[in-house]
Amino acid sequence: MKIYTGTGDRGKTGLFSGERVSKCHGRIEAYGDIDELGSVLGALGAALGSDQEDLRGEVQEIQAHLLCLSAWLATTPGSPAADALKPIPSGRAQTLERAIDRMQDALPELQGFVLPGGHATAAWAHLARTVCRRAERRLVAVVEVESAEKDAMMNEAMIYLNRLSDYLFVLARTCNRRQGVSDALWEP
């Protein structure tokens, strides 16, 4: 099977639910950012050493969750195609919260604003955090433009991305600590 179809050569693409939309449609922008986030997480996973299997496993699980979010973003709410998708489980944000709390317990208290960077793994985690925030902003735009505030899956996705950025911040600090690198603090 060829990977290219040429159906997008004139600036349109197809949603999973079948509608043909502009490639700068809000939903495409949003799941494009989630795709970028997944790729940055892939770089983070690749940079994690063999002694960081626990973190790599978490990162890969998040990548899978992001694909699930993307599928929902690629589907017009209420369309028949939505029936083919698995619901986003409501407990995923809580799983992130537990991971945040677990990592936080092993970190020194934060003394100020952290400058993104340090060890390469921490730098990737910070980059992922900023892409995550952008994806969240795009998602909020979709929800506002489409008046989809009552769409359960969009709400789950917003909660998940909001919590994921927090997770990635703490993950960045954890990566630095495990590598023996101190977080650089902002000195105004």
């Binding site: 099977m1 179809t5 159906t7 050569d9 197809g14 639910s17 043909r20």
Partner: peptide
């Protein structure tokens, strides 16, 4: 065949906007 799919999809974009298109490419 992917050429039919490309032609038909572009035709839909041009002539039948608002339609839904579901695709299975065999080549």
């Amino acid at each position: 065949h992917h050429e039919m799919i490309r032609e038909a999809t572009l035709l839909v974009d041009e002539r039948f906007p608002g339609s839904v298109v579901r695709i299975e490419s065999y080549s």
